[in-house]
Amino acid sequence: MADVVLHAETRNEFGKGAARRIRRQDKVPGVVYEHGLEPLHVSLPGHELLMALRTPNVLIELVVDGKGSQLAIPKAVQRDPLKGFLEHVDLLMVKRGERVTVEIPVVPEGELAPGGNLLEHVLSSVSVEIEATNIPDTLTVSVQGLDAGAAILAKDLDLPKGSVLVTEEDATVLQVLAPQAEELPGDEDEDAEV
């Protein structure tokens, strides 16, 4: 089942000027890609799309004027680098049962072993091939009680049933580092005198 329903309008104008006119109407220009068909240029409601894209790999039921509804996932999103508003979005049409490759964020949970150890996120997300209607928001991994030197590899993650890991199995996702002692500025002078 789709997470969000968005109503889109087809558009025939292209280029910077047309895109600016669309954005002034609180809409976002976009392109919808479907296997074996020509790309479809659309304009999408700005606020609803922004809210939908807060969820990674959101499944969108896209209702295009005169063409019915289909399922889509975000393929690429362009944002203004300073203000953060949406400038353009590419969507990929998917069918129920179709497998897609997506990046799923990894979220650690639990407390590390005592001693001031640090948790380093080597990979913030992993690439997974999964059925389009079964994409989780995140992959949680327990770091409870891990001590310095411990590492969690991509193959250690608990993936949803029927999914296949695309990221290299031996890639380090999280690792626990021992705390680094800082040298005080006065210590160097004392060592030189001795």
Rank of each mutant, 00 (worst) to 15 (best):
G30W: 00
P81H: 06
E34W: 01
K67A: 14
L50C: 00
R96P: 13
L146Q: 12
R54P: 08
V63C: 06
A72F: 00
H47G: 04
P74A: 12
V77L: 02
A132D: 00
V100D: 02
G115C: 08
G17L: 05
V128N: 03
T133G: 12
H35M: 05
K75D: 04
L40K: 12
L44D: 04
R96K: 15
L119Y: 11
R54T: 08
A52N: 00
H47V: 13
L44M: 09
T55R: 12
L71P: 14
V143I: 15
P81R: 00
A52K: 00
A76I: 03
G66C: 11
I135A: 06
V32M: 11
V63D: 13
A18P: 07
L146G: 13
G36A: 01
V89I: 10
A19Q: 01
G97H: 04
T138D: 12
R23H: 08
Y33S: 07
E129F: 00
E103F: 09
L119F: 14
V128W: 09
A113W: 10
D137M: 05
L49F: 10
P136Q: 03
G68H: 07
G17Y: 09
L44R: 03
L40A: 11
Q78I: 02
K67P: 14
L119W: 08
G115A: 01
T140M: 04
V122W: 06
N117Y: 07
E38T: 10
K27D: 04
P108H: 09
R23D: 01
Q78Y: 07
E129V: 01
V102K: 06
Q25V: 00
R21F: 07
G66D: 05
K67D: 11
D137Y: 08
L112G: 05
R54W: 01
G145Y: 06
R96T: 15
V31C: 06
T101L: 01
I135H: 02
E98T: 14
L119K: 08
D137V: 10
L50E: 11
K16I: 05
G84R: 09
D26Q: 15
P108D: 04
V42S: 02
E61W: 07
A19M: 02
R20V: 14
V102I: 01
V128K: 08
L50M: 12
Q25H: 09
L139A: 14
V64M: 03
E61S: 14
V94A: 11
D80P: 04
G46R: 06
L71F: 15
L92P: 01
L62N: 07
D147F: 05
A72L: 12
L50F: 13
E61K: 13
A19P: 07
A18E: 08
R79Q: 12
V28Y: 04
D80I: 11
S142C: 11
I135E: 05
K95P: 00
P136M: 10
D65N: 14
E98R: 02
E98I: 12
G36E: 03
T55Y: 00
H41G: 01
L71E: 11
A76C: 01
S124C: 02
L82C: 07
R79V: 11
A18H: 05
S43C: 10
A18R: 04
G46T: 03
L91M: 04
L50A: 14
I135S: 06
L82R: 13
L86V: 02
R21M: 10
